[in-house]
């Protein structure tokens, strides 16, 4: 049986060594570049016509813009439009990484926790900096729950701090686990189809068709969840309420 984890293997395409640091151009890098190029292609070339009645591609570009713009407006509130470019870039990049991963023989960038954790860490650190820049030292009040007896306060502050620190972990694990579990499932059932042959292989094949549909939904949904939680964290930092 073929190894279902083989698809997650990192291969060096161009060896590159920067002062003893392995900075090779891998298949992961290749698909990140591809995802970024797809987003650029969609937003720049799709919007080139600027037609009143949009073409298909312009329509897709406009829908994704409006989708993220509404998300930012609804979840971040006042002063949120400033961060729209960041949320839009993040959403589109994750969406295209996930969707490119659905193509056969492709590599799913977001199935590696180091990638998702790096993105979550950028969000976490950025949001924390925004919080301190906006409220100064008063941002620490964010960790002090209101209406609590003084005796319990030290314990609750520690719990609040830990719960704040869980944000990048839950954000990255969610995306990574979804993508990896889904792709492993697909490969395992693909192996069943081959293993059971012409007679018995139809049942897992039918399952795979349905599961591929679900995976496409998950690919979109996880990009959406990542973006919307970024918005919620931004809202917390800007307006400081739970």
């Amino acid at each position: 049986m073929p190894d279902p984890m083989h698809q997650f293997e990192i291969k060096r395409l161009v060896e590159l060594d920067v002062f003893g640091l392995d900075a090779s151009f891998t298949n992961s890098s290749l698909f990140m570049v591809l995802a970024a190029m797809c987003v650029i292609f969609l937003t720049i070339f799709g919007m080139r016509g600027r037609a009143l009645v949009p073409t298909r591609m312009q329509s897709v570009a406009e829908i994704s813009y409006e989708f993220v713009a509404n998300m930012v407006r609804d979840n971040v509130g006042s002063g949120g439009q400033r961060y729209f470019p960041f949320v839009f870039t993040l959403f589109m990049f994750i969406l295209f990484c996930n969707m490119l991963g659905m193509l056969p023989y492709s590599f799913t960038v977001t199935s590696h926790i180091i990638i998702t954790f790096a993105m979550a860490a950028v969000v976490f650190i950025g949001v924390t900096i925004i919080g301190f820049a906006k409220h100064g030292i008063g941002f620490l009040k964010f960790f002090v729950p209101s209406g609590v007896p003084v005796a319990l306060l030290p314990l609750l502050v520690v719990i609040e701090v830990i719960s704040y620190l869980t944000r990048p972990v839950s954000l990255s694990v969610r995306l990574f686990a979804n993508m990896m579990a889904g792709h492993t499932m697909l490969k395992v059932f693909g192996a069943f189809v081959v293993g059971l042959g012409v007679i018995g292989g139809w049942a897992p094949l039918a399952f795979m068709v349905a599961f591929t549909g679900l995976e496409i939904l998950v690919a979109f949904l996880q990009a959406y969840v990542f973006a919307i939680l970024t918005c919620i964290y931004l809202n917390d930092a800007l307006h400081m309420h739970h």
Binding site: V169, S170, V173, A177, N178, F220, V225
Partner: peptide
Amino acid sequence: RGSAMGTAFRIASELIAGLVVGGFI
């Protein structure tokens, strides 16, 4: 329709992340 699964995963990962971060600290 879309967020039912997202909700489930969000809650589960929230719980696990708490344990992981607490344990790591």
